[in-house]
């Protein structure tokens, strides 16, 4: 990234006279996440491994889950029992969920072994785990909405766990109306929000460098004097970043 990639015309990053709440919010956002950090055209040289593709795989699967889910939802819960097209769409909904979890779990394993929470990235790890947990609940409500033998039995089995901790009345596994609220409104919104936050945090903090990266490494020494990140005129990177959210 070279110098001319910094602020586009009309959007000066630095607005010393921002005094409204809105202006300050914009300045804070642009400082945390300038456009070329949000949509980067390069990555550090160490971002070169198949280990980096699974997060994107999970996001792609999530998009397919949403698309197939919208089709299923608009046709109503009984459609897939009686239509072969419906049955196929139901299959794509199921398999995109299976792929979503496969990618997400491999992503989680890899990020653990890369200790990806280092250097102020702990909130990225936490949002990742939360998105995994919320996804599990969302998938569970999907299994309860199959309106077939499997959902009948899962509802019968699972009611005990929910009742035992006192939430069974509002999360009533045998009330299809409640489950629709959970499965097609609340939980997808929650998964979407946490995943978006997770991705934004990855962009804000950048991809974690190798565990044994040292100042003496050739790839760090190379162009030491000239930062590859776009320069921020007032605040040098060190101090600008050190007030990060996790401190």
């Amino acid at each position: 990234m070279t110098a001319q990639a910094t602020p586009g015309p009309g959007t000066p990053v630095e607005e010393p006279d921002a005094h409204t709440w809105t202006g300050r919010a914009r300045r804070w956002l642009l400082k945390k996440l300038p456009p070329d950090k949000l949509l980067p055209e390069d990555q550090p040289s160490y971002v070169a491994s198949w280990a980096y593709v699974f997060g994107m795989g999970a996001i792609a699967s999530l998009l397919w889950i949403v698309i197939s889910g919208i089709v299923l939802g608009l046709n109503g819960p009984q459609w897939y029992h009686v239509s072969s097209l419906g049955n196929f769409v139901n299959s794509t909904h199921l398999w995109s969920v299976e792929l979503f979890f496969i990618f997400m779990v491999v992503h989680l394993w890899l990020k653990f072994w890369m200790a990806a929470w280092r250097g102020g990235r702990v909130l990225t790890w936490i949002t990742g785990v939360i998105s995994f947990v919320v996804s599990i609940v969302a998938a569970f409500t999907g299994y309860l909405l199959q309106t077939n033998f499997d959902s009948q039995w899962i509802a019968f089995e699972a009611k005990d766990a929910l009742n035992a901790v006192g939430v069974g009345a509002w999360f009533n596994v045998a009330n299809v109306g409640q489950l629709f609220t959970w499965h097609i409104t609340l939980l997808p919104l929650a998964v979407g929000a946490v995943v978006i936050l997770h991705v934004l945090l990855v962009r804000v903090h950048g991809v974690v460098p190798p565990l044994e990266a040292a100042e003496s490494d050739a790839q760090l020494l190379h162009n030491r004097p000239e930062p590859a990140e776009p320069p921020e005129p007032t605040a040098p990177p060190e101090t600008a970043e050190s007030g990060g959210a996790v401190r």
């Binding site: 491994s49 198949w50 280990a51 593709v53 699974f54 496969i102 779990v105 491999v106 394993w109 890899l110």
Partner: peptide
Amino acid sequence: VVMIILFVLAL
């Protein structure tokens, strides 16, 4: 098994 294979292949 697929998850384990993907994990190993990625490495």
